[in-house]
Design a protein around this nucleic acid. Structure first.
Length: 375
DNA sequence: AATCCGGGGGT
DNA sequence: ACCCCAGGATT
């Protein structure tokens, strides 16, 4: 454990490095708690380069907590569409509404109030309060944890709760009390740019002299990787209607998921977003799909529909590997389905959709281009 | 404390 | 094609 003058040197070198070499990121040009908050939510499980365009576009539509709170949820999700983990967007807006209702539109400065907001846990609360308000809370995210595991040559799975708590104590101890926001960002920046998972750039590291992992020659093998969950393969079939004008049908986000989510639970796999009529299949997909459609549209004359295979789409939802068999159904007139919406197959971005649905539309469009319109 | 939850991107 | 990455909520 670093103490005394060594701790002082460590802090000075890391902070100095950060102030000189930090990346110029959009959310580092503001102290607006709303913008810091938005960036932290977008950066959860998401790389900086992926988040930046979403961040800019989101702020153009929702420049402050009030506009976000007052927006239709559909519009919030639409601007999040493609970024993944859509629960983040739903929670973000819920929290915005709570901030307006209970905190006069100001992001809470107290840790417990921040933690009470949906989508904000230990990491995010510490990040926002330290960066926006200079509060003395040390962050521990994946980057910081990797840095600390290497610095202290910590073995074992760092995500085990006991080890994680030890790391949090270490982070608390190291925190530079004069500049908690910069300090926290410095720890994470080091993990993101030099102390990276593979082939860390130790010769460039401002605190390499303090690193036990490096001294022992095991830095790169730390932290020990977790065992990953086995992948479950799921096969889905989806119906892509197309009328003469290139319009198609999407079903609304499945609201309630009554039964316990199993591996082939469609609402989960379409991320509770707008989606093509989809079901899980095991045997002959087109037959199953026809039966499904008949059930979905009682009374509709569907006997003559031709289900043209329009390609396989692969998609991953955490530990599930989805193979989606898409079927193009060209019709003169789109059938009526309760709740369904009609959108151009060539541009379904007007509704919130997941990337799975985007890929399906793309595959079906290609098939439609090569298949002559029937009827 | 343990378990569950949900996707995208890099190589 | 294959591999990698984590933070919050729930129980």
């Amino acid at each position: 454990m670093l103490n005394g003058s060594e701790l002082g040197t460590f802090r000075k070198q890391l902070l100095g490095w950060f102030r000189q070499f930090q990346r110029d990121l959009p959310w580092r040009r503001t102290k607006d708690p709303y913008r810091i908050w938005l960036s932290e939510i977008m950066l959860q499980q998401t790389r900086v380069s992926a988040a930046i365009p979403y961040y800019q576009r989101f702020l153009r539509s929702f420049p402050d907590v009030h506009t976000l709170a007052a927006a239709p949820q559909e519009e919030v999700l639409r601007l999040w569409s493609g970024l993944g983990y859509y629960g983040r967007a739903r929670n973000l807006q819920k929290a915005a509404q709570e901030i307006v209702a209970k905190h006069g539109g100001e992001f809470p400065t107290c840790l417990n109030d921040a933690l009470a907001l949906p989508g904000i846990g230990n990491y995010t609360a510490a990040a926002i309060l330290s960066i926006a308000f200079g509060a003395k809370h040390a962050v521990l995210d994946g980057n910081a944890a990797r840095v600390l595991a290497r610095l202290g040559a910590i073995r074992g799975d760092i995500r085990e709760s006991q080890r994680w708590q030890e790391l949090q104590k270490t982070a608390d101890h190291l925190l530079q009390p004069k500049s908690p926001g910069d300090w926290n960002q410095a720890m994470m920046e080091l993990g993101a740019t030099l102390c990276i998972p593979k082939s860390p750039l130790c010769p460039l590291c401002p605190v390499a002299q303090f690193c036990q992992g490096r001294r022992l020659g095991i830095a790169e093998s730390l932290p020990e990787k977790r065992k990953k969950r086995a992948t479950v393969e799921v096969t889905l079939a989806a119906a892509v209607f197309a009328d003469g004008k290139g319009q198609t049908l999407l079903l609304p986000p499945p609201k309630k998921t009554k039964e316990r989510a199993s591996a082939d639970h469609v609402p989960t796999l379409v991320s509770k977003m707008w989606h093509f009529p989809t079901l899980s299949v095991s045997g002959k997909p087109s037959g199953k799909l026809s039966a499904f459609l008949r059930k979905l549209m009682p009374g509709v004359q569907s006997r003559n529909w031709q289900l043209v295979p329009a390609g396989k789409v692969r998609h991953a939802v955490t530990y599930r590997a989805i193979i989606l068999l898409s079927f193009l159904i060209q019709v003169k007139k789109l059938p009526r389905i309760t709740g369904a919406k009609q959108v151009p197959l060539g541009d379904i971005s007007g509704l919130p959709i997941s990337n799975l649905t985007r890929k399906v539309a793309h595959a079906a469009l290609a098939a439609a281009a090569s298949a002559p319109a029937k009827q």
